[in-house]
Design a protein around this nucleic acid. Structure first.
Lengths: 238, 238
DNA sequence: GAGTGGTCTAGACCACCTG
DNA sequence: AGGTGGTCTAGACCACTCG
């Protein structure tokens, strides 16, 4: 693993520190010159690491000021690929996650909404059903499917900061690298409507998501229903 | 204007060449070394320009190969901030745009869905209503609002490649830099349903969009309805 | 083997912010 | 004035792709 480039090591180290709470929203990271000194790296390399973090939305840079940690987004930025807790958790919205089922190992549902490769099919699947609240309103019902590959004792873990992504990163070294999703508008069927505490037949956003990770063939899958009657799903792309 | 950094000038030059059709999907851009020679820039600076293009989704890089122009996305990638024609236009989908109204100058609707600043309010607004087809199916109804600021004769122009963004870039030097959107699920009201040729009460995705540009206080606004019954809206984020 | 992008260094000047 | 990020150069070695 020492083959990973220096900028990536630094980026993931800083990301871990942010996710673990060592730096929180609004904090300044050490300056580029200081990171350069303490890690014996050229400033260009440090800048490369920071630019990746900036792209991922963990920091913003301000000239003359520094690199500012940024864990929140405007409104409910659920189209970006950061986890729910990191995106929505902020002073503006109080966030709660209720686990309705799991995490538990079981067989993959068939048919599955994305095509699985051989090793994924052979390994079981860890299933997780969570209901997300913003300001006491149920806004999101998420079904998550994780291949049971090299994740010892995952089912019995407690999620760090209630965040699946933070847990995977800190406990198993799994970093989310990208995300692909299909978005549709659907009408709530009775069972989904009941969990989201809304009328059957109301409009919902439905997402199929496939997250790519730093492990080559390891993906995480989600099917997500979002109630947008009170909160829109916001996103900012640059 | 010579104050713009070198990497930005190069990036916008390449972007213009891509948008104007000088390079099309799958073409290779000149190599980094060649761009470095022909523009008398260091390779690091060239790489900076290319990395911005890559972030914007106009190219992908392949080691040992080169920088490949990429104008299409998987399925209907309408959550990224490239224009409809650039994203959806590909071998897989035939694309058509029908202008239902405008472009025409008029007053801003009140209330407007985003807050306008002073100069935007004073200038009129150029309004445009377009219906988008993928494979002969109406999939998108877009209402676009552009502040009438320093855009001479815009109403009488023909759109280049049927693309609003390409026209703004090539004719007026306006580059789209970022995008912010709110996403909701709604039920089709009769007038929207009729234009999208669907049943009233069907579920639709509704987007409010605000595009930022390279002109500091110049934004473009859109309200968009998407029929996702046949085509999902896909997106890939990394 | 020649060319491509990927990583990295050492040093420089600038624009911006804050005490 | 001193520190911060923003831009840029000249050179180097590596990993990958292709003929």
């Amino acid at each position: 693993m020492s083959s990973a480039p220096q900028y990536q090591k630094l980026q993931q180290k800083l990301k871990s520190q942010i996710l673990s709470g060592m730096y929180t929203d609004g904090d300044l990271l050490p300056s580029e010159n200081e990171l350069s000194r303490t890690h014996s790296l050229n400033r260009v390399t440090v800048r490369h690491a920071l630019s990746v973090l900036e792209q991922e939305g963990y920091i913003t840079k301000r000239q003359g000021k520094g690199s500012v940690v940024q864990l929140k987004r405007n409104s409910l930025g659920l189209l970006s690929f950061k986890g729910f807790t990191e995106v929505v958790g902020s002073a503006q919205h109080t966030v709660k996650t209720q686990i309705l089922y799991g995490p538990q190992s079981l067989n993959w549902p068939a048919p599955f909404f994305y095509e699985l490769n051989g090793s994924e099919s052979e390994a079981g699947c860890i299933y997780l059903e969570r209901l997300r609240f913003a300001d006491e309103d149920a806004v999101m019902l998420e079904h998550t499917y994780i291949p049971d590959l090299d994740l010892p004792a995952f089912s019995s873990r407690k999620l760090i900061n209630d965040s699946l992504f933070a847990t995977l990163a800190l406990q198993y070294g799994v970093e989310i690298m990208n995300m692909e999703q299909d978005v549709r508008a659907v009408l709530a069927d009775p069972s989904v409507a009941e969990k989201l505490m809304m009328e059957p037949g109301s409009p919902l956003i439905h997402l199929y998501r496939k997250y790519g990770t730093n492990r080559g063939n390891f993906y995480i899958y989600s099917s997500i229903y979002c109630n947008t009657q009170k909160y829109a799903m916001g996103s900012f792309i640059s």
